[in-house]
């Protein structure tokens, strides 16, 4: 097991380097020039060739790409991601202060989606083809086909602004510090609800379908007949014997869904003005803030690789048949 983990981690490291090389190349080859950006931010509409060259040297931009990458990698190994081209702050600080907001979002979305998907999947499988199965299947398929940004727009305008049930923008109200504890909790929920729902609803649809399909497959197995032959209730058969067997593939699916949820965070965080790394990435891209973009790439890649590894390991712990050499 230890050897397996070591092997996987090594492989993950190689993958990580590959991802950073590609991102490095793509961001630098994309049109736009941080030096120009910096100068124009300075208010000058024109600038001297000398000032421009000095900025490019300052940012290492005059070096060949391979040299730039090697220098970057050398710093990153020491966990130094440099300073933002945009405001000169340390990149690690900029990312660090925004990471919790996004992790809360991803975690909340996964928990929320499972809280809905598991009961829906169980109930659908219990009477496959029945009324509940048909209705739930239809509703979820319809939901699933609505793009996230459309849903976000609808929720912000209708439920957020028009009905004013929830606060669609930001993490908390300006008056948060003055609130009582229950008031603070309510305020967080009011801000959290809409964006988390936007993250979660495609996951609910996907996971419920997945659970239902898997349960139906498992229900046809011989050991389910054995469970019935014992005299167990249909509920015990489904919830204990069948569900336990669908749990394993479910763990993997959830592990793989977290990264895709992170992908959605760029649009959603921007729309909901949620101060997470998705919004930061969006800003950094438009500002050609290479160090921040690269740091976020590394963060995202690490999260993806870790999730996959964790999914595999949990699978191994949950399924006695899986043993790693």
């Amino acid at each position: 097991m230890v050897r397996y983990v070591a092997k996987r981690l090594l492989l993950a490291g190689v993958t990580l380097v590959g991802i950073t090389i590609v991102t490095f190349a793509v961001t630098r080859l994309a049109p736009g020039d941080p030096a120009l950006e910096a100068v124009s931010r300075g208010g000058a509409s024109t600038m001297s060739a000398e000032a421009y060259a000095r900025l490019r040297t300052y940012y290492d931009l005059d070096q060949p790409l391979s040299r730039q990458y090697a220098a970057w990698l050398g710093r990153v190994v020491r966990l130094d991601f440099g300073r933002s081209f945009h405001d000169g702050r340390r990149v690690t600080d900029k990312v660090g202060e925004r990471l919790p907001a996004t992790l809360c979002l991803a975690g909340g979305a996964v928990v929320l989606s499972l809280a809905f998907a598991i009961p829906i999947g169980l109930a659908s499988a219990r009477r496959a083809g029945g009324v509940f199965d048909t209705v739930a299947g239809g509703v979820l398929a319809a939901l699933h086909s609505v793009p996230r940004y459309v849903m976000a727009m609808l929720l912000i305008v209708v439920v957020g602004v028009h009905l004013d049930w929830f606060s669609p923008y930001g993490l908390r109200s300006d008056s948060f510090e003055d609130m009582s504890y229950p008031g603070k909790a309510a305020d967080l929920v009011r801000h959290f609800a809409l964006i988390v729902f936007c993250f979660a609803y495609p996951l609910i649809a996907y996971q419920a379908r997945f659970i239902r399909g898997n349960l139906l497959e498992v229900l046809g197995q011989d050991y389910i007949r054995t469970a019935r032959a014992k005299g167990l209730s249909e509920r015990a058969v489904l919830h204990r014997h069948a569900f336990r067997n669908t749990l394993l593939p479910l763990i993997t699916v959830v592990g793989l869904l977290v990264p895709s949820a992170l992908g959605g965070s760029v649009i959603l965080e921007t729309m909901f003005q949620w101060p997470g790394i998705g919004q930061l990435l969006f800003q950094a891209m438009t500002q050609r803030d290479y160090p921040v973009v690269m740091a976020l790439t590394v963060v995202a890649a690490v999260v993806v690789l870790l999730c996959t590894l964790l999914a595999d390991l949990t699978y191994a712990l949950a399924d006695p048949r899986v043993r790693y050499a």
Partner: peptide
């Protein structure tokens, strides 16, 4: 029927490998 199954009448099957649930001891 459930009250009798496994208690008054029991059954064993042809393929024991498939008849046992793989995830429970």
């Amino acid at each position: 029927v459930r009250r009798l199954r496994g208690r008054r009448l029991a059954m064993i099957f042809q393929d024991p490998a498939a008849a046992l649930n793989p995830v429970f001891t």
